[in-house]
Design a protein around this nucleic acid. Structure first.
Lengths: 321, 321
DNA sequence: TTGTAAGCGTTATCAA
DNA sequence: TTGATAACGCTTACAA
């Protein structure tokens, strides 16, 4: 691949001048030489080395989004938001999946730092009593020292501007809605143990006067399991709110398979309002994932951000009465 | 952040020596100095600049996976495969989502090339009569010249080793199975128009003696729409095979909502065997997505690959009789 | 076993 | 308006 010095030679112009025309610098260049450089670049198929550029400018046009699980549409929605605004300005948004836990997160963070990423966005929640919390905090600090903007889109145990919605309030509001509609006995299917987000949603549920709570997770199967447990217990609650949509759909499906009428016999609600919720007409709460992604990208472009909490909204559909 | 020269100064040792101990070079270094360097690095919190390293070695430890849509579990499965083997060897796998079509693909490809990515894997299929096909082919060529290994995991219109399964055969086999089970009138819900993959699956269906075919897509809603169309036509076929699982699930759901018994009245099958297929017990065909991802990563580590076609397998469950 | 120095491909400072 | 040239942080001959 042609480099600046190739162009320089080909066009009979200094490297500095070539650089100036090829990267749209403000420095004035005569129209004549500009054309010659452009022509040479065209002929030689010049493409700048982002590597070399990043090395000297100390920042590359990479935005890394560290997600908990790449198959989770929750994260996909965020990633799309980031990409939507990043792409406009020539940033490359890359999503790094850390399914293996915070060890993997740490690995991705370090690599992103080592590549001087312009932005590092943590899309997922931190874990309570995370053994690698300290190492993570240090690496975050290092990354910032290298010039990366680090953002948290959920509660984390390190210093970073946050772009959030209120998980506790979201869980509270849907539960309160159900109570308002006359449901007395409401069961909450919890999220994965140890995630801050799980705890927040659980707290919101409890604060709204929810009664029982059973272990769950964030996956469809967890919802099925929870429904089975409820079914086996012999007596169903008036309503079930699940830690997220996918679990709610698991519950819903299992219940209906077992001949339980939803919402006539029991109401079922989720949280997140992702695509699958539309498929089944699930009552849930809409959270601003895409907008969070957009704002995160803006924050890295603007090189910083204020903490912000974005609004959520109930999406009442037909799995609750 | 500390750099090599900081370490060098702090340890009273040349930069070259520091480099040698810090990057595990084969060049011999005395145990004593090695320790001093390590100690200095530790104290100063040294982290190498992947950028600088990549600039001189002409290859960075980045594997880019260009997918068609980051929310599609099809791609997620591939990405996981890549990541699984890439992570072991310290490669950073980043997925770039090109929902906006091949213009976006081109953008990602160029960026990955500009960052001297070690590997660039195209997870999704190319489009027939793609206007940016030529630009794409050129950029692929450039990337290869810069040392990137470029791989295709579906049919593409540029030169690259392929790691595939046989889409046509997959569609053929599931259709043939249905015929063997005595279904005569079989309808195929097509994939998105213009994708090579769609055409291949359609061809397989036809070759197996499938009769009718109606437009569809790759999304749940497309399946619903197709079911509606079938329902409206007044007469249902014996079986329906959809271009992928998600569409099949859309068909299935809509049909059942309309009171049609599946599989008693009509059989429904998909292709891909992704997670949702398990949720509903969908008959489908398992394709080796994860393995393709793994092989792709291996190929970049080994700096090249032979073309290979991986086997698929029928997964007969309970939406067909 | 250690060090010197020449790149890698840019950008940016300073003169001309 | 243009051009030398010194960084950026690292690897790697080549010398010592």
């Amino acid at each position: 691949m042609a480099s600046l010095s190739d162009i320089s030679r080909h066009a009979g112009v200094s490297i500095a001048t070539c650089s100036r025309v090829l990267n749209g610098s403000a420095h004035p260049v005569s129209e004549a030489t500009r054309r010659r450089v452009l022509k040479a670049a065209e002929e030689l198929g010049y493409a700048p080395s982002a590597l070399a550029r990043a090395l000297v400018t100390r920042s590359s046009r990479i935005i890394g989004v560290i997600v908990g699980d790449i198959v989770d549409p929750y994260f996909a929605e965020i990633a799309r938001g980031v990409e939507a605004v990043g792409a406009e300005l020539g940033y490359l948004t890359m999503v790094c999946s850390a399914e293996l836990g915070s060890e993997a997160e740490l690995g991705h963070l370090r690599q992103l730092r080592d590549y001087h990423a312009a932005g590092i966005v943590f899309a997922g929640s931190g874990r309570v009593d995370d053994p690698s919390a300290e190492a993570l905090a240090t690496a975050v600090e290092d990354a910032r020292n290298r010039g990366s903007v680090v953002l948290a889109l959920a509660q984390r145990d390190f210093e970073a501007p946050t772009i959030l919605f209120d998980n506790e309030a979201a869980a509270h509001d849907i539960t309160a809605h159900l109570r308002d509609r006359g449901h007395d006995r409401i069961t909450f299917v919890e999220g994965p143990a140890g995630l801050h987000t799980s705890a927040q949603r659980r707290n919101g549920f409890l604060r709204a006067g929810g009664t029982d709570t059973i272990p769950g997770g964030f996956a469809y199967e967890d919802g099925c399991a929870a429904a089975n447990q409820l079914l086996a217990s012999g007596t169903l609650p008036d309503a079930i709110v699940a830690a997220n949509d996918e679990v709610a759909i698991g519950v819903l499906t299992r219940l209906r398979d077992a001949g339980v009428k939803v919402p006539e016999d029991v109401s079922v609600a989720g949280i997140d309002d992702l695509r699958p919720a539309h498929f089944v007409g699930l009552t849930t709460v809409s959270v601003p994932l895409h907008e969070m992604g957009r704002r995160a990208a803006q924050a890295v472009l603007e090189n910083g951000a204020q903490d912000v909490v974005l609004p959520h909204a109930l999406a009442i559909r037909n799995t609750t009465r």
